[in-house]
Design a protein around this nucleic acid. Structure first.
Length: 501
RNA sequence: GGCCCGGUGGUCAAGCGGCUAAGACACCGCCCUUUCACGGCGGUAACACGGGUUCGAUUCCCGUCCGGGUCACCA
């Protein structure tokens, strides 16, 4: 039942050589997590930095965990983050298909080849037997029960239609491999399990499919999370068993999450409600801010740009070196992400910020008389996340119930009595203004303060409080009055006076 | 628990045998100011511990401690 050698030769001939090729290989089991995003980014950067190719491969061999639309989410995330791919399920390429279930026949052939070479064997053990094995010793590896089956016994079980898996036969000795981040690592083969390569449903495990596909797709740099570091020796042994070139391994340390509630530190994960990329975007974070922040989480530039923190994608591509990837896990810091996001928000051209902010503003400000673009202008330097917006501007639509105490402010030298006088003076001045513009209102109020012999703040404070009903507002008295319009401003000032008298 | 990998301020981090040990976030103070922000200026704060190697260790080696990962017919 040997397979025609020419088929293998054909597969080998398709493999591109002479360029850096990396791949991001997510499984469509859920949404994109921050750690995943970072791995995808680094993988992409390694390819782009070297002028090589970046491919997307979907690893959907786990039938039980498939999630509807997950592939679409992956595509959308990659696109929004600017992670373009040269080959993949949707765009094709020379070494396709790029979805593992569409490659299912090929894994069996390679497994068969491995059996013939003596590096793998069929195992008919039942799940119950394996469980029993483990219950007596939780650390127990597979006891190689089926390794001793004679060819005749195997054949008769096959003829009887008994289900089986194919296991890797780990040789004696030790295995050493190189990792571009962690350096040389050696493990005793006795610590390695005869892992399953082909499951009883005929599909390959991740561990096997990964090696086959990476080789067949000409992947030169295998970039993945450090959680795979422990299984790397088994991959290495597989490459060796086939006689294939071993790719450069690039294991990236985990992204940890410092839970502010419990103080615990752990790997970021959905099950604890840690934010995914989608969550961040829906909370009002900009893609580029997230990408920029994440790039620096576990990587730092070398040389004269070691202090640079803000990078365009082009700059990242230019600066990214594998040697800058750090070994130790790093904690995702919301405060710092906020800072990046705030900086990106402020750097936006005002029109663009207004466009991004408008839907958020309109969640709180329904009255079309209030100019969203003008409000956006007040907000741009004052929010870290777009989602901060609604609560900041809710006072436009409805003056909040507020306490007269708000009129008292030490720094502005105001109290209830002073405030009442200020409002009394401001009212006619504003009423008489020919133009209701920023400059006109400011000039009128500033002039009035001078005339009254008080500092600007003494007049501005009560006006702002009466207009907004809040101690803290985006923008000062002038800006708020201008947006409210004359009628509403005067109405609110009178209301304030009533409160004070 | 076995195996693997880490350990510079609260966090991200530069450093790669000789430095007063960068920078950023956060925090604190001051200035600016029409509140709050933005912006500007300044400040508090670190080489986990113990042995070596060396003229000299944050940097190299060993141990301890601490942290993380992994031990599936999941990826």
């Amino acid at each position: 039942m040997s397979i025609d050698k020419s088929w293998f030769d054909q597969m080998e001939q398709r493999i591109p050589h002479g360029e850096v090729r990396t791949r991001f290989a997510p499984s469509p089991t859920g949404y994109m997590h921050v750690g995943n995003l970072r791995t995808a980014l680094y993988t992409w950067l390694i390819a782009r930095h070297a002028g090589g190719k970046f491919l997307l491969r979907i690893e959907d061999t786990d039938q039980g965990r498939l999630v509807e639309d997950a592939v679409e989410v992956i595509y959308a995330t990659m696109r929004r983050c600017g992670l373009t791919w040269d080959e993949g399920p949707d765009v094709g390429g020379p070494v396709g298909p790029y979805i593992q279930t569409e490659r299912r026949d090929l894994y069996g052939k390679y497994a068969q080849l491995l059996i013939e070479k003596g590096h793998a064997y069929r195992c008919f053990c039942t799940g119950e037997r394996l469980e029993q094995l483990r219950s007596s010793d939780p650390n127990a590896k597979y006891d190689r029960h089926c390794l001793s089956l004679t060819p005749e016994e195997v054949q008769s079980k096959l003829d009887a239609g008994e289900p089986y898996v194919i296991r890797q036969r780990i040789p004696e000795g030790s295995t050493t491999f190189q990792d571009a981040v962690y350096g040389e690592i050696t493990v005793d083969n006795a610590d390695l399990d005869d892992q399953i390569l082909i499951k009883s449903d005929g599909l390959p495990t991740y561990n096997f499919a990964n090696v086959i596909d990476d080789h067949l797709m000409g992947i030169t740099h295998v970039v993945r999370g450090a959680e795979y570091l422990s299984s790397a020796p088994k991959y290495n042994l597989l490459y060796q068993a086939f006689g294939w070139d071993i790719p450069t391994y690039v294991h990236c340390s985990s992204v940890m999450f410092n839970d502010p509630a419990t103080g615990a530190v752990r790997k970021m994960s959905k099950r604890y409600g840690d934010p995914s990329y989608q969550d961040l975007v829906s909370q009002g974070y900009l893609s580029q801010a997230v990408v920029n922040y994440v790039a620096l989480l576990g990587w730092a530039p070398h040389g004269d740009i070691s202090e640079q923190e803000f990078f365009t994608m082009e700059e990242l591509v230019k600066a990214f070196e594998i040697s800058g990837i750090s070994k130790s896990p790093s904690a995702f810091d919301m405060d710092k992400l906020n800072y990046f996001n705030a900086t990106y928000l402020r750097a936006l051209p005002p029109e663009e910020f207004a466009r991004e902010a408008e839907t958020w503003i309109r969640r709180a400000v329904k009255n079309p008389a209030y100019d969203a673009a003008a409000i956006a202008g007040l907000l741009q330097a004052r929010c870290e996340r777009l989602s901060d917006i609604p609560e900041k501007v809710d006072f436009f639509d409805a003056l909040p119930q507020y306490d007269v105490e708000l009129f008292t402010n030490k720094k502005s030298k105001t109290n209830a009595e002073v405030s009442l006088n200020m409002l009394k003076a401001a009212l006619p001045a504003l009423e008489a203004l020919p133009d209701w513009t920023q400059d006109a209102i400011h000039a009128a109020l500033a002039g009035l303060a001078e005339q009254l012999g008080v500092k600007n703040a003494t007049l501005m404070w009560p006006v702002r409080i009466a207009a907004a009903g809040k101690a803290v507002t985006p923008g000062g008295a002038v800006e708020i009055c201008r947006i409210l319009g004359r009628d509403e401003t005067l109405r609110r000032l009178r209301q304030g006076m009533d409160k004070l008298s």
